[in-house]
Simulated scan of single mutants.
Amino acid sequence: MADVEADQATLSGAQATVLSTAVGLLLLLCSLRSVPLGERMVVVRRGRARLRGPGVVALLPFLDRGVRVPLGVRWYGVDRLEATTRDAVRVAVTAAATGTVQDPLRYATASNPDQAVEWVLESELRRRLAERDLAQLATAPLTGATELAAAVSARTAEWGVEIGDVQLGRVETRVDPSLVRWATSR
């Protein structure tokens, strides 16, 4: 009888070893992440952020948080921006900007950096439109696009994003009697 109890204790010890090994392998496999060439992973542990990748990155379960950061060209769009020109004409503008992540650590630790970049783009567009007359927008809508991109980049650098190009897609205005009077007075 004592021999049977000893065999059961040995089996349960062997089962425990197999079970702990299986759990350890499962945790190891769950902690590995593959980071492609066009991305980096920012690993945050106890408030400290480290940059990892490309390649295989190991995260410690329950301690590390991994944030993937794409490094390629990103599009930021303004679908319809309502603004007023210097000569008090209401216009609706569509625009697009291209940008890249230059500092993945800043990008990953920022709160909603893509939305913040679009907000900055909209505010800079509003400011630039307020400095121009409607006639200037009609003749040369892209004048100052490099200065606009530089102004947006200066404000988005704190999130690790650099804007390379900004283009106005469409400038629309409502034709109403005051606009007709404005056009005929010129």
Results as ranks from 00 to 15, higher is better:
residue 129 L to F: 05
residue 54 P to V: 04
residue 2 A to F: 07
residue 97 A to P: 05
residue 55 G to V: 00
residue 53 G to P: 01
residue 60 L to R: 14
residue 102 Q to G: 09
residue 134 L to N: 08
residue 57 V to Y: 04
residue 41 M to Q: 03
residue 169 G to K: 11
residue 85 T to S: 05
residue 116 A to V: 11
residue 136 Q to R: 12
residue 73 V to C: 09
residue 51 L to Q: 03
residue 66 G to R: 08
residue 131 E to C: 07
residue 146 T to N: 13
residue 32 L to M: 10
residue 79 D to Q: 14
residue 101 V to T: 00
residue 28 L to N: 07
residue 125 L to H: 02
residue 156 T to M: 07
residue 159 W to C: 04
residue 144 G to P: 03
residue 108 A to M: 04
residue 142 L to C: 05
residue 67 V to L: 10
residue 31 S to D: 04
residue 68 R to Y: 06
residue 76 Y to F: 15
residue 141 P to H: 03
residue 20 S to I: 06
residue 172 E to R: 15
residue 73 V to H: 07
residue 136 Q to E: 15
residue 117 V to E: 03
residue 173 T to F: 15
residue 84 T to R: 14
residue 65 R to P: 06
residue 115 Q to E: 12
residue 33 R to E: 04
residue 30 C to D: 12
residue 96 A to D: 10
residue 47 G to W: 00
residue 42 V to K: 10
residue 9 A to H: 09
residue 3 D to Y: 09
residue 22 A to G: 07
residue 50 R to F: 02
residue 74 R to E: 13
residue 185 S to N: 10
residue 4 V to G: 01
residue 33 R to S: 05
residue 82 E to G: 09
residue 176 D to E: 15
residue 76 Y to S: 10
residue 102 Q to N: 06
residue 135 A to G: 10
residue 154 A to K: 10
residue 56 V to G: 01
residue 32 L to H: 05
residue 70 P to F: 03
residue 116 A to F: 12
residue 50 R to T: 15
residue 75 W to R: 13
residue 107 Y to D: 04
residue 166 V to N: 08
residue 51 L to K: 04
residue 19 L to E: 15
residue 122 E to Q: 15
residue 116 A to E: 10
residue 5 E to Q: 13
residue 75 W to A: 10
residue 50 R to Q: 13
residue 111 S to P: 06
residue 159 W to T: 05
residue 171 V to N: 09
residue 25 L to G: 08
residue 78 V to R: 08
residue 182 W to C: 04
residue 96 A to T: 12
residue 57 V to W: 03
residue 156 T to A: 07
residue 145 A to C: 11
residue 44 V to G: 06
residue 28 L to G: 09
residue 35 V to P: 00
residue 96 A to G: 12
residue 166 V to G: 07
residue 3 D to G: 08
residue 66 G to H: 03
residue 32 L to T: 05
residue 166 V to A: 07
residue 51 L to Y: 00
residue 128 R to Y: 09
residue 26 L to E: 11
residue 6 A to M: 13
residue 20 S to M: 10
residue 148 L to H: 02
residue 185 S to V: 06
residue 148 L to W: 01
residue 161 V to T: 03
residue 11 L to R: 15
residue 41 M to A: 05
residue 152 V to D: 04
residue 162 E to N: 13
residue 93 V to T: 04
residue 51 L to M: 05
residue 20 S to F: 02
residue 126 R to C: 00
residue 80 R to L: 13
residue 18 V to Y: 04
residue 142 L to Y: 05
